[in-house]
Amino acid sequence: MRGESSRAQLFNQDSLKLISSAFSFTEGPAVNRRGDVFFTDQPNNKIWKYSVEGKLSLFSDQAGRANGLHFDPKGQLLACADENNELWSISPKGKVTVLLHNEEGARLNGPNDLWIDQKGGVYLTDPYYQRDYWSRQQPEIEGQRVYYLPPGKNSKLMMVAADISKPNGIVGTPDGRYLYVADIGGNKTYRYRIAIDGRLSDQQMIIAQGADGITLDSDGNIYLSGKGVFIYSPQGELIGHIEVNEPWTANLCFGGKKRNILFITASKSIYTIPMKVKGVE
């Protein structure tokens, strides 16, 4: 991870392209092996697909109010199904399997975003955002945490970080050594060391800024979404900012056949911008 990229090398602001503004609030982009990007329109309870050919199509219209998405090594689409505070696995044909419903008998706060390691283990952020479609008015779990669900049918959910105000965006390095978690409540982004069993240690504040979504490129640069997209070097130095003319930029991922197209979900819209680096997802 060289971290030598400069703004001029990374992108051309004029290349930012509006794809569509036909949504209510876009979130959770995830890329499959082909390079197609799936994303959610959370208020409308839908998951959409944006293909490498540039075509939009509806993937699911019963999406469990999904927020964050991520593809596992087997090609299943995992979704933070916020409606009933669940984690779903969705097959390519749309069949839903509920992987996670509660933690020791208590409903999760509201699974928000996730990252899946090479073994198929799932890291999950669980902040509390009161939803108008919930019957409950307060959390059942004290604190807002990061969890790890190890691979395997009988695996048990592990709490791996409770030292964050409101965890939101999450991403790991492709070698499986480090996990980045954006604390949108504390306005900080932390890096953790990942142990063999999936537990986290050695919390370090790498950036004095939180985020809604987070991703990495092949140089190890860190992308934080919020008011546009902020790009930081692996050392935490601000090296670029992509301006997005929307009230809020919720999330982002690299897509396309070469993984060099940054796909951005921003309020009612989705955007793309070609990058001179590739994503690592």
Rank of each mutant, 00 (worst) to 15 (best):
D41A: 06
V52E: 08
K17V: 05
A8D: 14
E53R: 12
F39Q: 03
D61K: 10
F23H: 15
A66I: 02
E53N: 12
L16K: 10
G68H: 05
S6M: 08
L78K: 10
R33P: 02
K46F: 01
S60V: 02
S5A: 04
V52R: 13
S51C: 06
A79M: 00
P29A: 12
S5M: 12
S5L: 10
Q76G: 03
S24I: 15
Y50T: 02
G28A: 03
D61V: 05
G68K: 07
Q9P: 06
S60Q: 04
Q13H: 05
T26Q: 07
S57D: 14
A30V: 01
A63E: 00
Q9V: 01
D36F: 10
T26V: 12
R34H: 13
Q42N: 14
S60W: 01
A30H: 06
Q62W: 00
K74E: 06
N12F: 02
L10P: 14
R33H: 10
R7H: 10
A22E: 14
N44D: 15
Q9C: 07
K49W: 08
A30G: 09
E53P: 03
E4A: 12
N12D: 15
T26C: 11
G75E: 10
K17E: 15
F38D: 04
A63M: 00
G54W: 09
Q62T: 04
T26F: 02
D61S: 14
S51R: 00
A30T: 09
L10A: 13
N32V: 02
Q76L: 08
L16I: 14
F25C: 13
N44V: 10
S5I: 07
E27H: 05
V52S: 11
L69F: 00
A63F: 03
L56E: 13
S15K: 14
A30L: 03
F59I: 06
G54A: 10
K74R: 08
A30D: 08
A79G: 02
N32K: 02
N12I: 12
G28D: 02
D14S: 10
S24M: 14
R7A: 15
E53W: 05
S6I: 12
Q42W: 07
K17N: 13
F38R: 07
F23N: 15
F71R: 03
G64A: 01
V52M: 02
D36S: 10
L77Y: 03
S51G: 04
G68P: 02
F11M: 13
G75N: 06
R34M: 12
D41V: 07
V52F: 04
N67D: 11
F23Q: 13
V31H: 07
S5F: 01
Q62I: 04
Q42H: 11
S15E: 15
V37K: 00
S57F: 07
L77D: 00
G54R: 08
S57G: 06
L77A: 03
A63R: 03
Q62F: 04
G54F: 07
Q76C: 05
R34S: 11
